[in-house]
Design a protein around this nucleic acid. Structure first.
Lengths: 297, 297
DNA sequence: TTATAGATTGTACTGGTAGTCTAATATGTA
DNA sequence: TACATATTAGACTACCAGTACAATCTATAA
């Protein structure tokens, strides 16, 4: 991504942290990051879209670091899970994500509203899937409920713990640990009592549809890739991009288990190339994220 | 309160429910309730204050109904507690309180922000106090944590349960019951493990100070009552008000355990009287609510 | 070096918002 | 009737997000 654009994102995020989202005007952002209004609206369609950019950036950073904590470790290890949530809480705290989220929770803007909603469901989904890994498949019927309640418990505990122990970072560990222990007992208890509120299958309904089987999605994907191929063909020295695009197309549509990380890696040179319209590449990236159902977790 | 003002509150609340707070402009409210801008700003200092009026009205309604469920019942009866929270959830749902609250959660307006925060802590406080009644004094050290987590569990469960079972009101009972059962087990578990996150004493710090001992508060109270007495003295046929005011003053400042309901009852005729400036009576009512620390629960 | 395309700028503009102010009018009460 | 008070309509301010566009800068390629 354009480094200038990145700079604007950084500066405006700082302003949002300092003054809040609503209290920061476009003009503030222009002055603070030293760009003009025209450029701003060249980068972002709206103030809301800028905010979404900030969220997305931090989210992918968080996702990356969170996954790094798992490599080489046992996925059923509760300590790793605790560390993962600690990480997320610390990033939330550092970048005031919670505050910003709250500020736009119910926003007049439907796009932003949808984004926030999807992000929240994504957290539930990830937690649920980790719970299945940790507590085992046999507990699955109760684990969606537990994931939902865990998020509730953790957020509330964080909120009120912060009221007292504002400065100590060690507190985060304590709160996460305490919350995880509570939910651990709850899983056991529910497994014996057998009570259930939500079927785990509901998650699939909540999460934006996997469009994999959907014909129109496949068309859109092909269209997007073909557009980029066309541009590559029109340019000498761009055959390597055609190879990459062919690979992506094949992996997504014909592989039994398409490998997300491979495709994400393959997208990198495309994104960095000045050959393509960045919007087109971003659109392809978006389609890929839908394919892997990854834009929420 | 002025019935015309009450009408505006009702109409604007309806608009807020239908379109959302931000999406409703002052002009919409004026058109819909058939008043002029001047009158609006005569009633409310701002749009935010109107919203606070709506909250306060519903809150006192809720408080009243909630307490009615308890009369003649055993305060340690868990079923009553469940019914009480069901009631609150139903009122929340009916009047979209949650949605409205969320919409202004972090508001640019500090007054509104503070109001929301106090309301939330009020819910925690009330829940905590009920938990003490239900689970017993010996569990007290864990009950603030449990109250905090219960609210988190309940809200999350309501949120995601509503995603599926939107239409059924019966669901509310199910969700509240499920959540209460979870916290019940949690209390037991914590009592044996002895883990604690927040000392219950913290509540006193979070709740706005009791100004009872504060000299200036007592002065303000006396001042307020004396102002009203003065008006009564200036009018024939108003001696009965003086009696009432004397009673309030005595009960508040000299009784060992001032009885809130008595004083609230006593305020009613004062509020209904056309003799007094409604603002003055409201101020007294406000001071009384501070005295009993009741404006949050 | 120059030509050209694309990015960037500054600024004026639209249309919307909350809230202020005021002169005129209506209403209820002594 | 007279007077105080409540209400009205609307003009007005100040702010905001977002649009439009002509002018200017910048990098690259001939």
């Amino acid at each position: 991504m354009n480094s200038r654009k990145q700079h604007v994102i950084k500066m405006s995020h700082q302003l949002f942290i300092d003054r809040g989202y609503h209290a920061t005007s476009i003009q503030d952002i222009l002055d603070y990051s030293g760009i003009s209004k025209g450029t701003f609206y060249n980068y972002f369609a709206s103030k809301n879209e800028l905010l979404i950019s900030i969220f997305k950036g931090l989210h992918s950073k968080m996702k990356k670091e969170r996954n790094e904590l798992l490599i080489g470790k046992d996925e059923s290890d509760l300590d790793v899970f605790i560390k993962q949530f600690e990480l997320q809480m610390n990033i939330n705290r550092k970048y005031k994500l919670f505050t910003l989220f709250e500020e736009v929770l119910i926003s007049p803007d439907p796009e932003l509203k949808q984004f926030v909603k999807e992000a929240q469901i994504g957290v539930i989904k990830w937690t649920f899937e980790r719970f299945v890994e940790i507590f085992g498949e046999d507990k699955k019927p109760y684990l969606l409920d537990c994931a939902i309640m865990f998020i509730g418990i953790l957020n509330q505990n964080m909120k009120y713990y912060a009221l007292e122990h504002d400065r100590y970072t060690t507190g985060v560990h304590q709160v996460v640990l305490y919350s995880v222990l509570r939910v651990e007992k709850m899983v056991k208890e529910l497994a014996t009592s057998g009570e259930q509120l939500n079927e785990p299958e509901l998650l699939d309904k909540w999460v934006p549809k996997k469009l994999k089987v959907n014909g129109t999605f496949q068309e859109e994907l092909n269209q997007s890739i073909n557009d980029l191929k066309k541009i590559s063909l029109e340019n000498h020295d761009a055959t390597k991009y055609i190879e990459l695009l062919d690979f992506i197309q094949d992996e997504l549509l014909h592989a039994k288990n398409p490998r997300a990380f491979l495709i994400e890696n393959t997208l990198v040179p495309l994104k960095n190339s000045s050959l393509f319209d960045s919007k087109q590449v971003e659109h392809l990236e978006y389609l890929v994220s839908i394919f892997f159902n990854e834009h929420n977790n």
